[in-house]
Computed example of a mutant assay.
Amino acid sequence: MKIKLFLISLIMLAFTYSGYCLKVATTLFPIADLISKIGKEKVDVVYLIKPGEDPHHFEPTIDDIKRLQGVSIYFAVDKRFDSFALKLAKKVLFLNDEIKSNNPHIWLSFENMKQIGKIVSQKLCELDNKGCGFYKENYDELLMEFNSLENRYKFDNVKVLECHPAWTKFLAEVGITSVGYIKKGREHEPGIKTLNRVINLAKKNGVKYIVCATNDKNKIFNKVANILNAKIIVLEPIGGYDGYTDIFKLFELNLNNLKKDINE
């Protein structure tokens, strides 16, 4: 019996070591998927905000805290966005500080995601030196895919208004100029003077499109669109469900929506 138990223990130990992987965490699906593409089978990625949840009002639950047990590093977005991570993980890296971005929507940009990918591969190398070549190779593939996708979509002389300033950098990367935004943030309600200024600016620039996110729900956006006789283009900011189960698909579907609505 003792020999049998010893053999069972050896087998379980072998499975434990053969299946060993780093456990890391982040807040949102896009960054989690980026980490997964770099770490692949060597990394177990946990992300907290479920598809459809509003990240602006997210609070971690007890189950979320349990899921973070054993995490080696937490890739946080922004201290204004997910400072709760400091209380939940021993090692937290705020990505917006690393890439020096003032806009918390850092995942909505080709350039930002390339920089974040490089940072992630470097940190994984620090945590797992033996797998460093593996992570760097996967990052190089990620970089090529982003470059290929970005180069396939270019717009010419298109100006838009944003519901709130989440897409500015992403739009600029494909040749679309954002002349301004209607709301500064979720909790911000623009006054009459602000609205008049934004509307006049949009008219001056010949804006025919307003870019909003799927979770932008406010009657004021439709009112501004009616005044400008502008079309609202709705983009998906986070994904993680339906056809948006891959970071490249998330970018591509949003670009296809822009192309379709602008060319109509």
Results as ranks from 00 to 15, higher is better:
R67N: 15
A225N: 08
N112D: 04
G239L: 02
L171K: 02
N215K: 14
W107S: 08
L108W: 10
L253S: 14
W107E: 03
F75P: 02
I220Y: 07
Y241Q: 08
G191M: 01
K136R: 15
A230Q: 04
A213L: 09
I199F: 12
I182G: 00
N151A: 13
F58P: 09
Q69E: 14
K184F: 09
G191L: 02
I210A: 08
K136A: 10
N226D: 10
A14C: 11
I220N: 07
L95R: 01
R80Q: 08
Y20G: 10
I192A: 13
G39D: 01
S18V: 13
N229E: 15
G70F: 05
H188K: 12
G133Y: 15
L195A: 05
K100L: 11
V120D: 00
P30L: 10
I192M: 15
I262V: 05
L142A: 01
N138A: 10
D64Y: 05
L108N: 12
D64M: 10
K100M: 11
Q122K: 00
N102Q: 12
E41H: 12
S83M: 00
P60G: 07
S18H: 09
L253D: 14
P55W: 07
S109Q: 01
H57R: 07
G117P: 07
D128Q: 02
I262Q: 10
F94E: 02
K260M: 14
A230H: 09
P30T: 05
I3W: 10
E41R: 15
L88Q: 08
T16S: 13
V43F: 03
V46R: 11
A230E: 00
I247D: 13
K136T: 11
R152A: 08
K100Y: 07
N129L: 08
E236S: 10
N215V: 12
L86E: 03
I62V: 13
I233H: 04
K169Q: 12
I119G: 03
N222G: 12
V224A: 05
I247Q: 02
I49P: 00
A89V: 15
G117Q: 05
I8Y: 13
L171I: 09
K123D: 11
S121A: 14
G180N: 06
L5S: 11
K184N: 09
A85K: 00
I233C: 06
L255P: 07
M113V: 09
E59M: 13
H57I: 14
N157W: 04
F6Y: 15
N138R: 05
N196I: 08
I233F: 04
N218S: 12
F94W: 03
D64V: 12
I232Y: 03
L5V: 12
A202V: 06
